[in-house]
C-alpha cells in the first residue's frame, strides 16, 4: 500500500491561514492504514486548526470528512454538493488523491496534508518499509521474491556490490543489503543456480524513464 506521513502542521497553517471556510478531506484507503490521512487524522487536523484560528481571534469554519477513496471520481463526487462553500480543501490523501481532487474540482484550491513516501508494508504499527518502486516490469520471479530495485540502494540487477558488509548496506547499517537478502532467500528455496545467469539489462521504459505512465486495459473498458 501507499505509505505517507502527516505534514508538519506549521506547513499546513502557512497554506490555510487566510481561509475562512476550510474542509479537511481524509481518505479511507491506504493513508488510513498508515494512520496519516484517515477520518481520525482529518478530525485531529480540523480540531488543531480550529484551535489555531480561535486562539488567534479568528472565527473560521473548519469541517472534516473522509472519502472512501480519493483516487476514484465516483467517491470524489461525494463532495460535489458542498465543496463550493469552502475557500480551500486540505486533502489528506496520497499525491494521487490530492491531484485527482484538484482535477475534478478545478476551480477549488486544494492543499496536500500528507507527504506521500513510498509503496510499502506494515512491519508493525508505526513501522512501514518500502517494498516496490512500480518499475512496470516485475522481476521478483528471478530474485527469490525480493526486489533488487526497491531493496538495493543502487537498484543493481546483479549484486551485491562492494559496499555490502556483513549483510548490511554501505548507505546505512540499518539497511539490509538487498542482494544479501536475495542470496539467502535463493539458497533457502534451492535456486542459487540463478546466480549463474546474470540478469540482462532492464527495459526502463516501463518505469519513469518512459515519462508519465498509463495503463489501458481494453478488456475492461466499455
Amino acid at each position: 500500500m501507499i505509505k505517507a506521513i502527516p505534514k508538519p502542521i506549521e506547513e499546513i497553517i502557512e497554506n490555510v491561514k487566510d481561509c475562512d471556510k476550510l474542509l479537511i478531506a481524509g481518505c479511507d484507503g491506504c493513508v488510513t492504514v498508515c494512520e496519516a490521512g484517515g477520518l481520525k487524522e482529518a478530525k485531529i487536523l480540523a480540531s488543531a486548526l480550529r484551535l489555531y484560528f480561535t486562539q488567534g481571534g479568528k472565527q473560521a469554519q473548519v469541517d472534516d470528512t473522509s472519502l472512501t477513496r480519493q483516487c476514484e471520481k465516483e467517491y470524489l463526487a461525494q463532495l460535489s454538493d458542498r465543496i463550493d462553500q469552502y475557500d480551500a480543501v486540505v486533502s489528506l490523501a496520497c499525491g494521487c488523491g490530492v491531484q485527482y481532487l484538484a482535477e475534478m474540482y478545478d476551480k477549488k484550491v486544494i492543499y496536500p496534508g500528507v507527504d506521500t513516501c513510498f509503496m510499502g508494508v506494515n512491519e508493525e504499527r508505526g513501522l512501514y518499509s518500502e517494498r516496490c518502486q512500480a518499475c512496470g516490469r516485475c522481476i521478483l520471479a528471478e530474485t527469490g521474491g525480493i526486489c533488487p530495485i526497491a531493496r538495493c540502494s543502487k537498484r543493481m540487477l546483479n549484486g551485491p556490490c562492494g559496499g555490502s558488509d556483513k549483510g548490511k548496506c554501505e548507505v546505512s547499517k540499518d539497511v539490509p543489503c538487498g542482494w544479501e537478502l536475495i542470496y539467502e532467500r535463493l539458497k533457502t528455496v534451492g535456486q542459487l543456480d540463478r546466480f549463474e545467469n546474470p540478469t540482462v539489462p532492464k527495459d526502463w521504459t516501463t518505469s519513469r524513464d518512459g515519462g508519465p505512465r498509463k495503463i489501458v486495459r481494453e478488456d475492461l473498458r466499455i
Binding site: 508538519p8 502542521i9 506549521e10 497553517i13 485531529i44 488543531a48 486548526l49 484551535l51 489555531y52 486562539q55 488567534g56
Partner: peptide, 8 residues
C-alpha cells in the same frame, strides 16, 4: 506538540 504549534 499540537498545542505548542497552534499557540496554546
Amino acid at each position: 506538540g499540537i498545542l505548542d504549534r497552534v499557540g496554546l
